[in-house]
Design a protein around this nucleic acid. Sequence first.
DNA 1: GGCTAATTATAAGGACCCTAACTACATTGG
DNA 2: CCAATGTAGTTAGGGTCCTTATAATTAGCC
Lengths: 161, 161
Amino acid sequence: MANITPARVADNYAELYPGGDAQATECSMNLLQVSDLLLGNVAGLIKPYDVTPASGLVLSILRDADGPLAPNQIAERLIVSRATVTGLVDSLERRKLVKRRAHPTDRRMVLVEITERGREVTDIFRPLVHRHERDWLAGLTASEKTTLLALLARVQAGLVE
Amino acid sequence: MANITPARVADNYAELYPGGDAQATECSMNLLQVSDLLLGNVAGLIKPYDVTPASGLVLSILRDADGPLAPNQIAERLIVSRATVTGLVDSLERRKLVKRRAHPTDRRMVLVEITERGREVTDIFRPLVHRHERDWLAGLTASEKTTLLALLARVQAGLVE
DNA sequence: GGCTAATTATAAGGACCCTAACTACATTGG
DNA sequence: CCAATGTAGTTAGGGTCCTTATAATTAGCC
């Protein structure tokens, strides 16, 4: 098995990059690495249900919504383009997990509705993912998770400026 | 501009997922979201130099190595398959940023060598990325970054088990 | 009626990754 | 020595996810 360890900057980082911050770079590298591992784990977990991370998010959003949503709204929540949502909905519709319907009043719009089968699949894979999330982060105490969340929120703020 | 905020679980998470841990789920969601933002920022930053995140990593690895590396070694460091490295090296070679050479003794192997132009490009985009990493994380103090790194390392440990 | 804005869909493409199969070569054990 | 096995790199084929640009439709407003 691959022996994966936290990413480190070079020893001579400081002299190579006078304007840099070795800690900031290490944070970036490890943020990316940990996310990649996490995403891979999730992908492997839900693959048996024929769901991918992105389409799983769409299902999840629809499952929790009060009713059908327009692709537009889904795109906003996923922070992707509407064209991307079109493709994701296409693939979900092929698998009969969602269904497109006409908007009752605005005929430009489409409403995406989760099907009964979509609900069933979502209600299976999502608890599974959540249980694994719990296990993956079992090494952190509740207060450490609180700290991590607060730090991530601050990093995010710096990234969207 | 999109108003991106930290991801939150539903209010009724606890009753929906009795076996779950809302904090763990929020950590996962935000880890992925922050990484995605970070990767997007980096990609936009290096795009003018005609470098993508993955090929930039290959260049970076070669730039810091003592000499040429075998694709095998690059794949190990990137944690991707050899086939992926073949493609990345192909694209870098097309742009004259790296060059393939025969291994002196083992004729199964190839050595990938960064070119002078590759060094120049790397020496331009990498300091730029590092300065931005510093700015993106400027909202965190040194000790907070230390904390974040420690927490990420622990999360990683939970992910590779 | 006519203009502008909004919405979805389509087309074309790029970045990134994988597995499986294949070739060439090296190594090992009889 | 040589047959079997292992290793390195590539190729072929595929999949996911995302983009921009464009088209077609409709809404909303003057």
